[in-house]
Amino acid sequence: MSAAPPDNDVLWARGIVKSHQGTPALRGISVGVRDGEVLAITGPRGSGKSTLLGCLSALLPVDEGEVWFNSAPVHTLTRTGRERLRRDRFGFVGSEPHLVPELTARENVALPLLLAGAGHKAAYASAAEWLERLDVADCTARRPGELIQSQRQRIAVARALAPLPPVVFADDPTAPLHRDAQDQVLRILITAARSHQLTLVLATHNPELARFADRTVALTDGRLSSPVAPVPRGTSPVSAGR
């Protein structure tokens, strides 16, 4: 085992290599995510953003390299350990909502809380609160099949944020949304991250949306295409309230 990660990095990856059935997706990526920051990972389709997010969020095991979370190794965890980490520490919003179709919106949002062992009443109250914050309070008792895509995506965002995980991963969360809804959902995501001191790792193919982030990492063909360029705090539109 090599040196431990720097202290201010909550999540840290070094030289990770990952391929999907022989197709290389990541070819040696090192990246650190600081505590409480909003990190954007940009790049065109197929550049490895989703795979990087999968490796960082303990969804995919890495082929080579190391991933550390809170000074504990993630790459050596067993499947059960990774499941527990995802359940207790990470939230995830994908580019598709992927809600459970037979559960109502409130049950979908309450599910991660229930899985983590929260009480029924507390989980449902928190779910209702988050649905309200995301402007979908009127969908509480409806099922995903009866809703439109932007409502479903808001519910998916609420599901990821409701347990207030230390790190939230968002893999192109605005892909299914129209422009106005894109900005709104992203603002809610980032405001929630800032107000609850959550770390947000945001992958997006749209460089415009990366302006909301504190820092941007660009990927091309599974490699970092530019050195990590820090954006001074304050220039980002939503960091003003912090």
Partner: peptide, 16 residues
């Protein structure tokens, strides 16, 4: 399949 994958991503244990 997709629903199961989403549940696994949420950290649902396979035992559940």
């Amino acid at each position: 399949r997709e629903v199961t994958a989403a549940l696994v991503q949420l950290g649902t244990a396979p035992r559940l």
